[in-house]
Simulated scan of single mutants.
Amino acid sequence: MYAKKVETEKEYEDAIKIRRKVFVEEQDVPLHLELDEHDEEAVHFVAYDEGTPFGAGRIRVIEPGIGKVERVCILPSYRGRKLGNLMMQCMEDYSNSTGINKLKLNAQSQAILFYEKRKYTITSPEFLEAGIPHRAMEKQI
């Protein structure tokens, strides 16, 4: 199993397919909120298990040296196997290699512990995004 930066149209389609399954189908996020205007400018990532996609995410540069991690997801059948760490490590390594030294994200409240274990710290009170409770978090990398 591995995660990588999206480099082909098929990899991009695979990442979008995972995001639709997790956010739109599983969590009822409206499609127009999930697939947004930032998809064109973001760097996308996808994770595979012998050619089968199971994870996705994206990063956008929001200020010089600061990236925003977004849309990180793992298919339900792959959860609980530390594969979110595989996705995040790939995204953090990419960020570090491109001069990004701080990452921000809006974590679903149920995922805060996952991000805290990766050394992200909470920087906001809880808020709703697409009807789901979130907290802003960040990490120096």
Rank of each mutant, 00 (worst) to 15 (best):
K10Q: 14
E11T: 10
Y12S: 04
E13G: 06
A15Q: 08
K17G: 12
R20K: 15
R20Q: 15
K21L: 15
V24T: 01
V24H: 05
E25H: 12
E25P: 01
Q27D: 06
E34S: 10
E34I: 09
D39C: 04
A42N: 04
V43G: 09
H44Y: 07
H44V: 08
H44I: 01
F45S: 01
F45I: 06
D49W: 10
D49E: 12
D49P: 05
G51C: 07
G51K: 10
T52L: 15
T52D: 13
P53T: 10
F54W: 00
F54P: 01
G55A: 02
A56V: 11
G57M: 00
R58K: 07
R60S: 14
R60D: 12
V61F: 14
I62Q: 12
E63Q: 12
G65R: 09
I66L: 11
I66Y: 03
I66E: 03
R71M: 05
V72P: 07
C73M: 04
I74A: 08
I74G: 08
L75N: 02
S77R: 08
S77H: 14
Y78R: 08
Y78V: 06
R79T: 07
R79Y: 05
R81S: 12
R81T: 06
L83D: 04
L83P: 03
M87D: 04
M87K: 03
M87V: 13
C90Q: 01
E92G: 06
D93L: 05
D93H: 01
Y94W: 15
S95Y: 09
S95V: 08
S95H: 09
T98Q: 14
G99V: 11
I100F: 12
I100W: 06
N101R: 11
K104M: 15
A107L: 09
Q108F: 06
S109P: 00
A111W: 02
I112F: 10
L113S: 14
L113M: 05
Y115N: 05
Y115G: 04
E116V: 00
E116A: 13
K117G: 00
K119D: 13
Y120W: 11
Y120H: 06
Y120C: 03
T123M: 10
L128Q: 10
I132C: 08
H134E: 07
H134R: 02
R135G: 04
A136C: 07
